[in-house]
Simulated assay, not measured.
Amino acid sequence: MAVKVKIPTPLQRLTNKQSQVEAEGFTVGEVLADLERNFPGFKERLYDEKGELRRFINIFLNEEDVRFLEGLNTTVKDGDEISIIPAVAGGSL
């Protein structure tokens, strides 16, 4: 099942500067695993040492945060779009 994955600028060096790639899987977690198989280096940037998504990484499926769905077990279908969004912090007003 082909899913489009939007890649943030800081991670595009792993995808040969592609801002969007396709990956396969039946769940968000499987799609991210396929992303790692095709573009090694994603796992260490997305997951912590316990195998959990890093707290500053947000994953959206069709504009919905997967944390409010079924997390990495959220099912995907052909044509869905996953966005990897690193949290932005810092600065002052």
Rank of each mutant, 00 (worst) to 15 (best):
M1A: 14
A2K: 14
V3Y: 01
V3A: 02
K6E: 12
K6C: 03
P8H: 00
P10C: 00
L11V: 12
L11A: 11
Q12F: 06
Q12P: 03
R13V: 12
R13E: 08
L14T: 07
L14E: 09
L14G: 06
L14C: 03
Q18H: 12
Q18M: 13
Q18T: 10
S19G: 14
A23L: 05
E24G: 04
E24L: 04
G25S: 07
F26T: 14
F26E: 09
V28L: 08
V28P: 12
E30F: 07
E30P: 14
L32C: 11
A33P: 15
D34M: 06
L35F: 10
E36W: 06
R37V: 10
F39Q: 02
F39N: 06
G41A: 04
L46F: 12
Y47M: 08
Y47W: 10
Y47C: 08
E49S: 15
G51E: 04
G51H: 07
E52D: 14
E52S: 15
R55Q: 13
F56N: 14
N58D: 12
E64A: 09
F68Y: 13
L72R: 01
T74V: 00
T75A: 11
T75G: 10
T75S: 11
G79A: 02
D80G: 06
S83V: 07
P86M: 10
A87S: 14
A87Y: 10
V88Q: 01
V88Y: 07
